[in-house]
Design a protein around this nucleic acid. Structure first.
Length: 422
RNA sequence: GCGGUCGUGGUGAAGUUGGUCAACACACUGGAUUGUGGCUCCAGCAUUCGCGGGUUCAAGUCCCGUCGAUCGCCCCA
């Protein structure tokens, strides 16, 4: 036990890796259906890409893996959007790609948090970004993609929460209203919220400490501050969701942790009783100012990120079987001094498309048959010294127990008869 | 970053107020059945209880530290 994976990281292998691959394949297919193209950005970026001015989120301020090489400061990406937008601007996608640019990414992210169920220091996200147009239909389509991923995986116990933060004008008005409201009740707030009051009063609304306090309960709602455009925009998003038969719950305290969101924000949570306190499967929203922040044109975007560990966890909680059993066609048993014949026979099988395992350990036929059972092989080929001398093999169909002796050249013909063509 | 619980073989775990051999089950290996498995029976399988230190004649059992897991807070995917 002298070496172990760092805290909050994990090795993915065995059955797990099959589940991962199954989900990854669903993601690729879905993105293709919706016209999203993959983008692979660096795992680390200049720290400034993530650490933006006026950012009050914990993620950016105290959870980043940052290191310096010479004069440069780099950071392991804690999320995917910033890198994609940086790339979008740097590579001038707005000039070469048809708008909107529809990009997806998938890969590891890093945050130095205290691990718990559904929360890791290295975790994986699949995310999409729809950049270049501002249209409520785009918001709805983005949510639909994520929703359909969960549906295809088979997750049933979920809830789509949605809210709007309004456009710049509406949000500034709302922030002012909130500040005014909370200033008179400031003494009742927890220390975190006192800090938030200055930096981002919206965040007080989903504080779990002060959640129950009268000041918070009586706080003004965003609806009252929304201008007509923002209100219309949100209504159209909701209408579009309804037309797609996506059930949603308006959660007017939902503000989300990243500071760059404007207008629509959403979060999909597992409602499974054992999902734990990290119940968000995916979350995202619209961002009006991120592209211009990265010195690109004034373009709006919308996107989300799915936590793959959580997706897998919730699928497991609901008892969903994601992968097919690994099936083996042929197991080659070898007995005595048979030289390299088993290997050659194995190769003949594989060349014909049959999956094949060749025994290479000198051991009893009994124990080799145990391996056959364990591997769930359909056919067994038995090779002993006699078979080598006579250029034949014994070939047995496990299901029917039917065993025949055939010449080496007829092996494939016999396999076709037993288990069909490959 | 804060608080609670926990850490025994490949796995699930029992280990009483600290006192011979660290139960039991599954898995695994071998044999009965030495070229034909899935059943049964028999045998083997933790010089050691996450790691380090301390208390004691004696510690898996108590104390401290450390690492890790887990639950909640915070945060978020």
């Amino acid at each position: 036990m002298s070496y172990q994976a760092p805290r909050g990281t994990q090795d993915i292998y065995g059955e797990d890796v099959l589940n991962w691959r199954s989900v990854e394949e669903k993601i690729y297919k879905l993105c293709n259906l919706y016209g999203y193209e993959e983008i692979r950005t660096p795992i680390f970026e200049d720290t400034k890409v993530f650490k933006r001015e006026n950012d009050s989120s914990d993620m950016v301020n105290k959870e980043m893996y940052t290191f310096t090489m010479g004069r440069d400061s780099f950071t392991l990406r804690p999320e995917g959007t910033a890198g994609v937008i940086r790339s979008f601007v740097q590579n001038k996608f707005y000039g070469s790609l048809e708008m909107p640019a529809k990009l997806f990414y998938m890969g590891p992210m890093f945050r130095h948090e205290r691990p718990q169920k559904g929360r890791f220091r290295q975790f994986h996200q699949f995310g999409i970004e729809n950049i270049g147009i501002k249209n409520p239909l785009a918001d709805a389509e983005v949510i639909a993609l994520g929703y359909n991923l969960l549906k295809q995986v088979g997750i049933k116990q979920l809830s789509v929460l949605i809210n709007t933060l309004g456009d710049e004008e509406s949000r500034n008005k709302y922030k002012d209203d909130l500040r005014k409201h909370f200033e008179k009740g400031i003494d009742e707030l927890c220390p975190d919220c006192k800090r938030r009051l200055e930096q981002n009063p919206l965040r007080i609304l989903d504080c779990k400490v002060d959640f129950d306090k009268e000041v918070v309960k009586s706080a003004p709602l965003i609806d009252d501050s929304l201008n007509k455009e923002s209100k219309d925009y949100f209504d159209k998003v909701l209408k579009a969701l309804e037309s797609l038969n996506i059930p949603y719950v308006i959660e007017n305290r939902l503000v989300r942790g990243l500071d760059y969101y404007t207008d629509t924000v959403f979060e999909v949570v597992s409602t499974h009783p054992e999902s734990g306190s990290q119940s968000t499967v995916f979350g995202g929203g619209r961002y009006d100012n991120l592209v211009s922040y990265f010195k690109g044109p004034e373009l709006s975007g919308v996107g989300f990120a799915v936590g793959l560990e959580r997706l897998l966890l919730f699928a497991q909680l609901e008892g969903i079987k994601l992968h097919k059993e690994n099936e083996l066609d042929v197991y080659v048993i070898s007995l005595g001094d048979v030289k390299d014949k088993p290997l050659k026979i194995g190769q003949i099988c594989r060349d014909a498309g049959y999956s094949c395992e060749v025994n290479m350990v000198e051991r009893s036929i009994k124990s080799q048959f145990k391996s056959v059972d364990r591997r769930n092989s359909k056919v067994v080929i038995i090779i002993g010294e006699d078979e080598v001398n006579n250029n034949v093999v014994n070939i047995k169909d496990i299901k029917t127990q039917n065993q025949v002796t055939v010449n080496d050249v007829d092996i494939i013909k016999q396999l076709e008869e037993f288990i069909g063509r490959r």
